[in-house]
Amino acid sequence: MTRADLKHEIVKQAAICFAKNGVDATSIDQIAHAMGASKGKVYHHFCSKGELLLAVRKQSIESVIQRVKPVADTPAPTAQRFVAMSKAHVMGILVDLPFHRVVVENLRAGLSQNLPPHESRLLSEIKALQASYEDLFRDVISSGQKDTSFRQQSVSTTVNSVIVLLNAPIFWYQPRAEDTEDSHRRIAEHIAEMALGTLTPRP
């Protein structure tokens, strides 16, 4: 396993442990045990549980961006592009559910205002990624308003509300053994169509 692969595996196992047991109740020892490694190996890559938590948050937004940005960059008609972006977002949520549940818990709990410098820098990177991601939806919604495929309403309010809707499975979805990519896709399609309905002009 390469250094990058090991670091990714640590973040993945941390996300699973944090989501299952809660951030406060999860120790570095538990994360190391879950991946069959020593605590020292985890600390070799991450100085603290706080840094590891931020790494989970960063991975959660990066993975969604990787799914959605290629779709956002296509020349498809606005409404079609919005639906495709929304489906990609929901699929990302369903596939990496532990990551996103950890993010929600972390945001609810809040972060200390006295972070070490390296954690503060990491948090700034996360906020910049989040802003750039929201801009993808801001751009497509603004385009839809300009070409009249979407109704005129506050773009900022709409962007935030749409993303909350697309994030809905974080709160209610329970993975099952019989789940497949097709079952995930059906959920994604349903939610994407609901999101589109909030944008289309009223009769």
Rank of each mutant, 00 (worst) to 15 (best):
L111C: 04
H45P: 02
S143D: 14
E181C: 09
V155L: 15
I170E: 01
R151N: 07
R151K: 14
G92A: 04
K87S: 05
E9Q: 13
R3F: 06
T26V: 06
R67L: 13
G144I: 09
D24R: 13
M1C: 09
L196H: 07
E125Y: 06
D147M: 06
S156L: 13
R151W: 12
Q145S: 03
D179M: 04
R138Q: 10
S132E: 12
K12D: 11
R101M: 07
G197C: 05
I141M: 10
V71L: 11
R186G: 04
P98H: 06
S120K: 09
A37H: 12
L166N: 08
E178N: 09
A192L: 05
G197A: 11
A195H: 07
Y43H: 06
H118Y: 06
M85C: 07
P169W: 10
I93V: 15
F150Q: 07
L97V: 03
E189N: 14
P75S: 14
S60F: 03
L129S: 03
I163Q: 04
T74D: 11
P169G: 06
R176V: 08
G50E: 11
V11C: 00
S112T: 08
H118Q: 14
E51Q: 14
K69M: 15
Q153W: 05
A19T: 03
Q130W: 07
M85H: 03
V102E: 03
D5V: 12
K146G: 07
R67V: 05
E193S: 13
L53R: 05
D96C: 09
Q80Y: 08
G110Q: 11
C17Q: 10
Q130K: 11
A79E: 08
E125C: 15
T148Q: 11
L53A: 04
S38D: 11
E9K: 11
I16R: 01
L123A: 06
L111Q: 07
R176K: 15
I126C: 00
K12W: 14
P77Q: 02
G197W: 04
R108H: 14
L111P: 11
D29W: 10
P98V: 05
F99R: 12
P169F: 06
Q113L: 15
G144E: 09
D179P: 13
E134N: 13
A79S: 13
E134G: 14
K41H: 04
A15Q: 04
L123Y: 06
Y173V: 01
P175R: 07
H33F: 04
R101F: 04
T78F: 02
E178T: 13
L52E: 05
S156A: 15
S112D: 08
T158H: 15
R186W: 11
A25S: 10
S27T: 14
P70F: 08
L165H: 10
Q130C: 03
A168N: 07
T26D: 00
D147E: 03
E51A: 15
S142N: 12
Q174A: 15
M35S: 02
A32G: 02
T198D: 13
I28Q: 08
A84K: 12
S183F: 03
H184G: 04
P77I: 11
A192P: 02
I187E: 00
D179K: 12
T2E: 07
Q113P: 03
A195M: 01
L53P: 10
V23S: 03
I191P: 02
A168W: 01
K69L: 11
I31G: 02
S183I: 03
K127T: 13
D73T: 13
T2L: 03
L123W: 09
